[in-house]
Design a binder for these strands. Sequence first.
DNA 1: CAACACCATAGATAATCATCTATGACTATA
DNA 2: TATAGTCATAGATGATTATCTATGGTGTTG
Lengths: 323, 323
Amino acid sequence: MVLIMKVRQLTFRLLQVYADVVRTGSLTATANRLHLTQPTVSQQLKRLREIVGEPIVRHEEGRLVPTEVGQALYHLSQDLLSRADVFSQYLEEYNRGGRGHFSIGLVNTAQYVLPRLLGPFSQANPQVDVTVEIGNRQQMLNRFERHEDDIYVFSHPPIDDDVLAAPFLSNPLVVVGPQHCRWASVEGLSMDALKEERFLLREPGSATRHTFDAWLYSAGIELRSTQQIASNEAIRLAVASNMGLAVLSRHVVADSPNGVQELPLQGFPLKSRWHFVIRRQRRLPPAAIRFLSHVQGSLAQAFDEPEGEVAVAALLRALKAER
Amino acid sequence: MVLIMKVRQLTFRLLQVYADVVRTGSLTATANRLHLTQPTVSQQLKRLREIVGEPIVRHEEGRLVPTEVGQALYHLSQDLLSRADVFSQYLEEYNRGGRGHFSIGLVNTAQYVLPRLLGPFSQANPQVDVTVEIGNRQQMLNRFERHEDDIYVFSHPPIDDDVLAAPFLSNPLVVVGPQHCRWASVEGLSMDALKEERFLLREPGSATRHTFDAWLYSAGIELRSTQQIASNEAIRLAVASNMGLAVLSRHVVADSPNGVQELPLQGFPLKSRWHFVIRRQRRLPPAAIRFLSHVQGSLAQAFDEPEGEVAVAALLRALKAER
DNA sequence: CAACACCATAGATAATCATCTATGACTATA
DNA sequence: TATAGTCATAGATGATTATCTATGGTGTTG
């Protein structure tokens, strides 16, 4: 029975050395090039020969030339080494964040603004693919609990020792009414005046609802009539159809204002900010880091949010320190 | 600066183990499958991780799943391992002689008959390629001196301690004349009768010439008129054109007898045999061995040369003993 | 044929590897 | 919340590797 090659003992080092020997045709030359001594190379060659189980070089006019098997082995070496090299380059690229994948979990409302950050990033980093998960606050909290995503965007970060949060973008909540709403032109409009209106609200799990509720509570106001609708978009359409007023992120309205308008209510817009939320303990893919850097760079110019830029910078520093 | 993978430390063994871990999703399972203990596998994985410089697996619902980098590494492993495997198969095939290369050096006359051996062999072993070198005796002797070929075919093997020779096929030398030659029908035709004829002869380096000269010498005959022509084919044509008689291998005539015929000269055909000639010390490629085996198998049936078969068998035995 | 270049082998050594057993930590499920 | 299963780590050991220096053999070339 013929012995087959002892693949398990094969190392890339041996192949490297061998490939060089074939190229130079000389052990001594290879020894010099690889900063080894000649006997070392000689021995490596011998070992490789034993692994293969067949002579791989022979002497010919003072040079070492590969035998037929040696030729095949040389090709194999080239092939394997270059493949390993490609992988190595991939690794490097991955580490630079120019390649790879990360996932980001968005609270519903944030989906109106995040594309403006993700778009240019993807443009600049076509090899990175991003998974965007979208859900209401509660759904995102669940994902967060289960460590499902690399980055989250919340307006109210969950409280947790493990959490790093950076408020990067303001998210003003405004009251909106239909296009020709009579309240639109009232000076010094106050909530008292609107108490009798019907309010179309997001479900209790949502951040927008939460913020508004808190404000109502602190202002000691109770609404007469409310209706719950789970989607910002549906709410906007309902408002446009005169079904009531609503509190929405200004971004939702700004995005496509057809049929609704912001009302100049005193005390509004409610201030609120989106936060990048990351678990301290989680090791972020380099691509995610790169995304955050990208965001940091564009916040001041494209979004006029210098504070956001500072916060994201701090977040990045914290991440760097964490590892 | 990002560290690149430490390729030189990479082993195929590590890749094997890793690939299995990815497949099973469990260290313990892999340990059992590969007849190792679980800590061993654990450590291998750790080492691989260090070589790559990046986490390659993570726990997920009690299973081990590759990280993104791990995925890429897994693909790499598969790829590299399967390539090594292909090479291993090649090796096996090479060792069986079903693949590879060998060269055979033929004395001119032998080219008329060797195709009948090589043809079926190549048919049966399409992956083997054979280099056939052809020359007259002297040229072949030179090649032999320089160890240029794996197998030689001579009618008179060079004398050398290093030589193994097996007479495998008879090579009868006959006298031929033109188609309607008056000698063709003479009973008991003797050389004496032909002394006055012009003989067309191969050059002195050739085996045919050598044999004929020796015969003439031992018979005490000297030819009146001779002419030297270097090619068997040219001689055959010259004979057909009534330029004289000639001594040729019967195979040359049998091959395409147009215009010439064998003369029934007493003492002819001269007996002579082709020999496979091999240097003891040379390590033959398995394909060459396989060729010899093939020849051995076909000599008895296709050529009615049982003695040749025996001789080749002995040659093969000697070669096997030699290594 | 003397000198030189080149390769092979021997002998030595520190490092690393491949393994094992034993044990501790974590996790999912009964 | 026990229990079983799974992974990680520690510690030990023999085998193998990667290297070196020194030396001897072989073949090439003035």
